[in-house]
Simulated assay, not measured.
Amino acid sequence: MSIIGEYLRVTPAQLERAVRDPEWALDHADEVREAEDQPESPSTASRYYSTYKAWDLIRFLLARSGMPVDIIHGEEPFTEEDWGYGPPRYLHPEHVRLAAHTLRALSYDRLLEGVSPDDLLRAEVYPLGWDVTMLGWGRHWYDGLTHFFETAATAGDAMLVWLD
């Protein structure tokens, strides 16, 4: 069983509905996830994105950089219901804009500066088993996530975030 990071762009009105009706939010997330095949990189129309197993690597790298928004676990809770590996959380449009701005300023190469496979092993970064050839593995997921957040920020969207 894998743990994957998942993101759903929602309008501010949809966020309000999700907070009032978390069951609707889960149904909506499932519908969007099933309707969208995740391409190599998200398009501007994509409402769903997954960082696959790279979520913890991205978390580790962003924590080292002082990321001001928790884009891996979200900022605000809206239900106690478990969506896989704990309850989902959300990011207000302001958090999405701040995250997009920060992600845009941080290239993957810059995030990797000074990081060794041993650092990842010591920190028990999922999915474990790191070696020097795997450091670049997360680039695709990070670049896609950056694009996804930039698109959401431009649209004024909020974000639902969870691990499944």
Results as ranks from 00 to 15, higher is better:
R139Y: 02
V125C: 05
L61G: 01
P87C: 10
P68T: 08
H95V: 06
L120D: 00
R89L: 11
L112W: 14
R97F: 11
A63S: 10
D118E: 15
V96G: 04
Y90M: 09
H147S: 15
L106E: 15
E75I: 06
T102L: 11
T79Q: 07
D82P: 03
T151G: 04
H140R: 05
T79I: 10
Y108P: 08
H92Y: 07
E75P: 02
T79D: 08
H92S: 12
R104E: 15
V69A: 03
W83L: 07
T151W: 12
W137Q: 07
Y126T: 07
A99D: 08
L135P: 01
D70P: 02
R97K: 15
E124T: 04
A100E: 07
W83K: 04
V125R: 03
P68G: 08
E75A: 14
E124W: 00
G114A: 11
A155I: 09
A123G: 06
T102G: 01
L111C: 10
R110G: 14
L106V: 07
F148E: 08
A105P: 07
A99F: 09
D82Y: 02
H92W: 06
A63M: 10
S65A: 15
A105I: 13
D109Y: 13
E80H: 08
A105T: 15
A105N: 15
L106D: 13
W83Y: 11
G129Q: 05
L62Q: 06
T102M: 13
P93N: 14
I72F: 01
T151K: 04
V115E: 01
D143I: 01
G144P: 02
P127Y: 13
D157I: 08
G86A: 08
F148Q: 06
L61Y: 02
T146F: 04
V132Q: 07
P127N: 13
G84C: 13
S107L: 12
G144R: 00
A63I: 03
D118N: 06
G136F: 05
G86T: 05
Y90G: 06
L121E: 15
V115T: 03
E113T: 10
A155V: 11
T146Q: 11
T102R: 14
P77K: 04
P87R: 06
G66E: 14
L103E: 12
L145A: 02
